[in-house]
């Protein structure tokens, strides 16, 4: 491999994309720096329980990194914004809770079940990928609401009904924290791997112009489905871990629209369509939220809203996205 890692223009890419390709060349060192950064974050994350008695802040920080990165796989890379993203989170939480509480499954089995449930739901919802733009967003949101209603209407001994499920078999929170770190870093690693391979360019082509991408031979259907399944499965595992961590699941919390909204906001503030953006967005917003929330008990949401609005006004493409737009030379280092 040469010193310059290219996003490998292939026979499938259009001339227009081929002409733009040099802008998207990544310096090989930037990928290594990014991988080393992720390794460093993982090392720090692993050492947190040894130096801090509380891991909740970190647990949720890594959860939002995972969710923002998972959402970015779909919304950022293909341009499909799933407002019903919370459905995956909810189904994962419910699958893990049902297996753990009603079938006494150990943690690993509950997580396997949640992963399968997330993948299955992604397959069931796959026909919605035929829609585009706002229609897709609205339908995905509707399906999340329908799914929530189905869960509520199931018999209580199957899914807890409206009251939800309180998980009495207590799971080790530190182990769940480590698992969340692993899922989070895994989600970012997947996004990185996709971005630096030709698939990244193909996905960008789908996001820019679906019809054009299909005309030049990009397998848009297959790629979208793959991203949809990856995105949904990661969200389902996050839901499962969060459910086991908090030990209380109810339909309102598990299928809360805020799960979708926050994942979209965090990814967008960092930079939709970039790998680093969702990580930057999730980390900055979670830390900002924490600092504001502890210092301004009453006005914290108001201040947070102002910060989000200001960030969107000054960085309309997100922090990383706007940086790359204003300084294209950084594209060799930030992606």
């Amino acid at each position: 491999m040469s010193m310059v890692m290219q996003s490998a223009p292939s026979a499938e890419t259009a001339p227009s994309v081929r002409q733009r390709a040099p802008l998207f060349r990544l310096h090989r060192a930037s990928v290594w720096i990014w991988c080393l950064t992720l390794a460093g974050i993982s090392l720090i994350a692993v050492s947190i329980p040894a130096v801090s008695a509380g891991v909740s802040f970190w647990f949720y920080l890594f959860q939002w990194i995972a969710l923002a990165s998972a959402l970015n796989l779909m919304a950022g890379m293909t341009g499909y914004v799933p407002f019903g993203f919370a459905a995956f989170f909810g189904i994962g939480a419910y699958a893990a809770a049902v297996l753990s509480q009603f079938h006494h499954a150990p943690t690993w089995a509950a997580l396997v079940g949640a992963t399968a449930a997330g993948a299955l739901l992604a397959v069931l919802f796959a026909p919605t990928l035929r829609l585009r733009g706002v229609f897709f967003s609205v339908v995905s949101l509707s399906l999340a609401i329908v799914l929530r209603s189905v869960i509520v209407l199931l018999p209580e001994d199957v899914a807890g009904g409206s009251s939800g499920i309180t998980i009495t078999g207590r799971h080790d929170p530190i182990r769940l924290y480590y698992l969340m770190v692993a899922v989070s870093m895994g989600a970012v690693a997947i996004a990185t791997a996709i971005s630096v391979t030709p698939h990244g360019l193909r996905l960008k082509a789908i996001g820019d112009d679906l019809d054009a991408a299909q005309i030049i031979g990009v397998n848009a259907k297959g790629l979208r489905l793959a991203m949809w399944m990856l995105s949904g499965t990661i969200a389902a595992v996050c839901g499962a871990l969060e459910g086991l961590y908090s030990s209380a699941i109810d339909p309102a919390a598990a299928f809360n629209i805020l799960i979708s909204t926050k994942a979209i906001i965090y990814a967008a503030l960092g930079g939709l369509g970039t790998v680093m953006g969702p990580v930057v967005g999730a980390v900055l917003m979670t830390i900002t939220d924490e600092l504001i929330w502890t210092r301004f008990p009453i006005a914290n949401l108001f201040i947070l809203g102002l910060i989000v609005s200001a960030t969107v006004l000054f960085f309309p493409r997100g922090i990383v996205g706007s940086l790359l737009q204003r300084h294209p030379r950084f594209r060799r280092w930030f992606f």
């Binding site: 509380g54 909740s56 802040f57 647990f59 949720y60 959860q63 969060e242 961590y245 908090s246 209380a248 919390a253 805020l258 924490e290 929330w293 502890t294 008990p297 009453i298 914290n300 949401l301």
Partner: peptide, 16 residues
């Protein structure tokens, strides 16, 4: 502290 009626915030509130 403010928990915003948020289940995900409650553990952080009580740790704090």
């Amino acid at each position: 502290r403010d928990d915003r009626s948020d289940k995900q915030l409650a553990p952080r509130v009580y740790e704090s």
